[in-house]
Design a protein around this nucleic acid. Structure first.
Length: 424
RNA sequence: GUGGGUGUAGCUCAGCUAGGUAGAGCGCCAGGUUGUGGCCCUGGUGGCCGUGGGUUCGAUCCCCAUCACCCACCCCA
């Protein structure tokens, strides 16, 4: 039997409904912040990711789906989308257009990791990017937008973690100081940290091993090493967030896994997830454009893990994504089918979700089906009804039934929907 | 990539600890007469026991391998 490949899955109702809800709300919230959608290719030149995300990162060095095209160029399924958005900005000369560019995207990403709770090889992200400026107010606006989005969804509690990791001027000094401090207690650190010290020193700060904590706590903080410009940028950002009442935790030990980040980085976590507790992450990337051969273009963005979002959301709001038929059309005898279908078309044109089946069955069976489909109403179309032009409309919740003319059906059914509290 | 756990009907699981080719609940189908669901009753449907080897007269059960899923490490969204 052919099965879905490891780390991929089929998303079915009600989960697919929850995905739709989350996506629709993102479009709404992002729109009022003046963001437009961008759709970039699912695959790109592998080099794009190597040069932006970084060749030494896990994402590029061991998780990317890379393959040779027929002409031998090396392609890769995108492991993230920021690099593509920046590539498009450069390629299409968007810097010639006035003002900042604000984009959002929704779609699948691919990383070949070992699957786990909240972690898939094909997973979905909603992300947003602002290109063309580095004013701290941009950072504040992006963070405000994502917090607004979480609040609208009803996701809570969550923690907003905030940090600044400096830029190419000041970070090297910090890394040097960190390596020196860690080097002194090298043999006291866990095996992982000892390795990370060589490969990616900043990650040592992120270690969760208990025995490492006392040492890590005494390591220098990135915030003490920020240059004047980075410091000013960070404090202005914090002032703006404070002024807008957005709560955050400064976490100097938070590092991000992609090489392109500079200055502002942030992350939002939730306790409702397992070990993969990060709901979204983002930051500024002022040098990314140059690293892929473009002109200087400053930018900031974030990416939301949709799968995890939906996981949290369905815990908080279990009914999310349920969308059942409003009307189940039951017809009695083959002579009534054409009239029944005519009524179905009328209802559908009025926007009513309408179920009808084409095998003849007894009314008892039809009602039973309607019940299992959780239809709100059953419209009964028999020969008597057709003769009198009065159709039975049974309310499945209470069981009461009224007889209505064709023209009365739509308003009656839609009127009932107003009163119901079924979310999208 | 590393570790632990799990793979038996559509679903949730039992049986497997003294090896003899399988059970429950739910579901599904049909009835309990004529055009009214949810409850109840009756009957029925349903599984090469993840896959491939091995041991054995014989394996769902023991051994090996492999695959998949879950959780964790790692990493990240």
């Amino acid at each position: 039997m052919i099965k879905a490949i490891r780390g991929t899955r089929d998303i079915l109702p009600p989960e697919s409904g929850a995905f739709q809800y989350v996506e629709t709300l993102a479009r709404e919230v992002f729109r009022v912040f003046n963001f437009d959608e961008i759709r970039t290719p699912i695959f790109e030149s592998a080099e794009l990711f190597a040069r932006s995300v970084g060749t030494e990162t896990d994402i590029v060095s061991k998780e990317m789906y890379t393959f040779a095209d027929r002409d031998e160029t090396t392609l890769a399924l995108r492991p993230e989308a920021t690099a593509s958005v920046v590539r498009a900005f450069i390629e299409l000369q968007m810097s010639q257009e006035p003002g900042l560019k604000r984009f959002y995207y929704i779609g699948p990403m691919f990383r070949r990791e070992r699957p786990q709770k909240g972690r898939y090889r094909q997973f979905y992200q909603i992300g947003a990017e602002v290109l063309g400026g580095d004013h701290p107010a941009i950072d504040a606006e992006v963070i405000e937008m994502v917090v607004e989005y979480l609040n609208r969804l009803g996701i809570r509690p969550f923690s907003l973690l905030l940090n600044s990791i400096g830029d190419s001027k000041c970070r090297p000094n910090f890394v040097k100081a960190l390596k020196a401090a860690a080097g002194e207690v090298r043999d006291k650190l866990c095996e992982n940290c000892q390795r990370r010290l060589e490969t990616n020193p900043l990650r040592v700060l992120d270690c969760k091993v208990e025995s490492c904590q006392p040492y890590i706590n005494r390591f220098p903080s990135i915030l003490e090493y920020l240059c004047a410009d980075c410091q000013a940028h960070f404090s202005e950002l914090r002032g703006l967030l404070d002024a807008r009442g957005i709560a955050y935790q400064i976490t100097p030990r938070m590092v991000r896994g992609l090489d392109y980040y500079t200055r502002t980085t942030f992350e939002i976590t939730s306790d409702l997830l397992g070990a993969q507790n990060s709901l979204l992450g983002g930051g500024r990337y002022d040098g990314l454009s140059e690293s892929i051969g473009g002109p200087p273009v400053k930018g900031i963005g974030f990416a939301i893990g949709l799968d995890r979002f939906v996981m949290v959301l369905t815990q908080i709001r279990p009914e999310l994504g349920m969308d059942r038929p409003q009307v189940y059309v039951a017809w009695l005898g083959t002579k009534t089918l054409s009239k029944a279908y005519e009524l179905t078309r009328m209802l559908r044109r009025a926007g009513v979700r309408c179920a009808i089946e084409f095998d003849e069955m007894k009314l008892k069976k039809a009602l039973s089906n309607a019940d299992r489909l959780k239809a709100a109403f059953v419209l009964i179309v028999g020969e008597d009804e057709i003769a009198k032009n009065k159709f039975g409309l049974k309310d499945m919740k209470g069981g009461s039934q009224v007889f209505l003319e064709e023209r009365e059906l739509v308003t009656r059914i839609q009127g009932a929907r107003e009163g119901s509290a079924v979310p999208a």
